[in-house]
């Protein structure tokens, strides 16, 4: 049996499930006592499944958001879009495989799709730098944004990154500059921009393609100013205490909705999107169509004005005397 990926908090459940599978391989027809025990185990598993997945803590949701089997941008492109043409390169330095930019069609509507691209396996993850872009990735995205603006195509952006790559080469090629320029550009595009948080939303690297007119979050995706590990290593000098800061950072889809940063949450199947990707694809497709549909009818200048006000309004402070 191939070892499947197990998240720490679901281990007790998975172990019981494995026991059940093993027991069911045995012929129990002449052992009624054991048969009763197996059926008790099955109902215990059902109970434990709801207990385990029913009320995930913020840190558990982070683990679900990082699950290797979680649907990624390439899965959404394949499942819900048609006539996909990927665009490559930033025309300045290279083609960053951690960002995907594509022309694609959803429900008959032509659009530009952007996304952080993680690999589907370790080998591909190394090629794609685990979905952490270098400056050329953001600059490729900016090319696609300008293209969308020029030809009046709505933008749909799939956010799924631990963050912009922290490295010497990335710094030397202007990581901060690329992110800042992307934000300024997004603020002035005359086309609708819909962002879907499908997994990880790590800081500026997520925001750089995630700023727009609507933010839709999958239930177990997160979006944060800093990774819980980095926050813990600053505050507690110990990145292993990430679980302790995931809650105070208010980074879950529910928190974002409460804070007025996101517009809606798409519920996930029990245990996470990877348990039933088809159901997630269909919900995401429907919510994107609806959001884009409601935005394309708005006048261009009005759209830019509303986007400005949307971000202008975020922040809590006090006016002194």
């Amino acid at each position: 049996m191939s070892r499947k990926y197990v998240m720490e908090f679901e281990r007790p459940l998975i172990e019981l499930e494995e026991q059940l599978v093993a027991l069911r391989r045995i012929d129990l027809s002449d052992n009624p006592d054991l048969m009763i025990e197996v059926s008790a185990l099955a109902s215990e598993i059902d109970r434990l499944r709801i207990e385990t997945y029913g009320h995930l803590t913020p840190w558990e949701r982070v683990q679900v958001a990082r699950h290797p089997d979680r649907p990624k941008v390439q899965d959404y492109l394949a499942a819900i879009f048609s006539d996909v043409i990927e665009l490559h390169g930033d025309r300045l330095y290279g083609d960053d495989a951690a960002i995907v930019a594509a022309l694609a069609t959803l429900d008959g509507r032509r659009m530009v799709v952007l996304g952080h691209r993680k690999g589907s396996n370790t080998k591909e993850n190394i090629k794609r730098n685990f979905g952490s872009p270098h400056p050329e990735g953001f600059r490729k995205a900016m090319r696609a944004m300008r293209l969308a603006d020029k030809f009046g195509l709505p933008i749909v952006s799939f956010m799924d990154t631990k963050g912009a790559h922290p490295g010497i080469d990335a710094e030397e090629r202007g990581q901060a500059w690329a992110i800042a320029e992307s934000l300024a550009l997004l603020s002035e595009l005359h086309v609708p921009i819909v962002t879907v948080g499908i997994g990880e939303g790590g800081s500026g690297g997520a925001l750089a393609i995630g700023m727009g007119d609507r933010l839709i979050m999958l239930e177990n995706s997160y979006y944060s100013v800093i990774s819980p590990e980095a926050c813990a290593s600053i505050l507690y000098k110990d990145s292993a205490r990430a679980a302790d800061v995931a809650e105070p950072l208010k980074m879950t889809a529910g928190d974002l909705l409460d804070l007025g940063v996101s517009d809606e949450t798409i519920p996930e199947p029990l245990g996470g999107a990877h348990q039933d990707p088809e159901a997630v694809f269909s919900a995401v497709s429907e919510r994107i169509s609806s959001a884009v549909g409601s935005l394309v009818v708005i006048d261009d200048d009005e759209l830019v004005e509303r986007r400005y006000k949307r971000h202008r309004a975020i922040g809590v402070f006090e006016e002194g005397a």
Binding site: V225, P248, L259, V261, H311, R312, I314
Partner: peptide, 17 residues
């Protein structure tokens, strides 16, 4: 400022705009 979580991140969008 990480103590203000996502609200801090959004100040990047706000100031850049």
């Amino acid at each position: 400022r990480m103590q203000e979580g996502i609200l801090s991140l959004m100040q990047m969008a706000k100031t850049s705009s």
